[in-house]
């Protein structure tokens, strides 16, 4: 499947993947993250069970202290 990950096209061998698996494969390992799938906020407890499909738009934002 090919998705738009953080505004860039990104291809994976699998047909569908959970958000958690994509985060693992792409090494998003921050403690504080905001995740949006096709514009909708996805809470942390739903990352393992939320399925991402071809053509989806996934945004993963790192939140870092300081300001």
């Amino acid at each position: 499947m090919t998705i738009t990950l953080n505004n860039r096209p990104e291809s994976f061998a699998a047909e569908t993947m959970s958000i958690a698996r994509i985060m693992d494969e792409k090494s998003f390992h921050f403690k504080m993250l905001v995740v949006k799938l096709n514009g909708s906020l996805i809470a942390g407890e739903s990352w393992p069970k939320t399925v991402v499909r071809d053509g989806d738009r996934l945004d993963i934002i790192h939140l870092v202290s300081g300001g």
């Binding site: 403690k31 504080m32 993250l33 905001v34 906020l41 809470a43 934002i61 939140l63 202290s65 300001g67």
Partner: peptide, 18 residues
């Protein structure tokens, strides 16, 4: 959003988005 701590940034982002 102009908080200092990441935890505050996170709840505020989620709260505002909801």
């Amino acid at each position: 959003e102009a908080f200092d701590r990441a935890g505050e940034k996170q709840w505020f982002a989620e709260w505002m988005t909801r």
